[in-house]
Amino acid sequence: MKKITLIRARNRWQLIYLKELWDYRELFVIFAWRDLKVRYKQTLIGAGWAIFQPLFSMFIFTFFFGNLAKIPSGGLPYSLFVLIGLVFWTYFSGILSNASNSLIENENIVKKIYFPRVILPLSKIITCFVDFVIAFVMLILVALYFNKIPNYQALIYIPLGIIIASLAASGSGLFLSAFNVKFRDVRYALPFFIQMLIFLTPVIYPLNIVRPSFKYLLALNPMTGVIESVRTVFEGGVIGWDTLGISLASSIVIFIIGLNYFRATENYFADIV
C-alpha cells in the first residue's frame, strides 16, 4: 500500500495529525536523545547540574525567605517546602524556554527537510523530564531526611501535576516558538518573563497568604495548582480541587491555544525563519 501525499495551498484544517506524528514517533526520541547527549558535553559535573541548580537555590531561598523573612511554610520545613516548588518550577521553565528557542536553534533543519514541526518543541518535554526525574529523586531523599513521606495520594497527584505542568509549558512553548520565528523579541523577553513569573507562582510562599479572591486569579497560572497540590501530598493533607481544577482547565486551554497558533503558522516557518 503506497502512501499518497496531497499538497495544496491550503490544506484542510486539523488541530493535529495523529497519524503523521505516529509515523515520526522515533524523531521525538532522537531529538531528545540528541539534546541530552549534547547538553552536558564538555562539562565537569554533567547531569549533576540537574541536582545542583534546585539544591543550591533551595539553600539560598531557605536562608533569605525562610530564616530572615520568615515566610510561613505550612506543615513542612521551609527547605522542603521551597524545594518542591523549585523542582516543579525548574521542569516548567525548562520546557518553556527550551521549546521557545527550538525552531530558531534548528533553523538549518527546518529549512532543508520536512517533518511535523511540533516535534521540535514537544521533544523538549522528554529532555526536561529526564532532568526532572533526577531532581525528583533528590527531592524524595530530602523528604526522607525530614521524615515527610507522601501517602498513597502521591500516586495520583504527582503524575497529574506533571501532566498539567507539561501541558502548560509546552502549550506556551509552542506559541512562543512560532512567534519567535517571526519576532526574535522572545529571545530577550523570555528570560525576564520567567524570572517575573516565579513570583506570580507560589514557589517561595504558600498560596494561603494571599486573599481568597486573589487565590483564584493566581490559580489561572497552572503551576499554582501543581505546586500547591504536591505540597499538600507531602503534608498528608486533603487536596483542594478548586485551585487544582482551575489550573488543570487553564493548562488545557493554554495547550490548545498554543498548538492552534503553531499549526496555523507552521507552513511558513521555512520561508520566514
Binding site: 503506497k2 499538497i7 529549512k111
Partner: peptide
C-alpha cells in the same frame, strides 16, 4: 515538493514515500 514550504496555488499528488536531499 518536499513540503518544506507550501505552494501559493496549484496541487501536487505524490504516490509513495518521499525523501528529500536538499543539502
Amino acid at each position: 515538493l518536499s513540503k518544506i514550504t507550501p505552494p501559493s496555488s496549484g496541487e501536487i499528488v505524490l504516490r509513495g514515500r518521499v525523501t528529500s536531499l536538499l543539502e
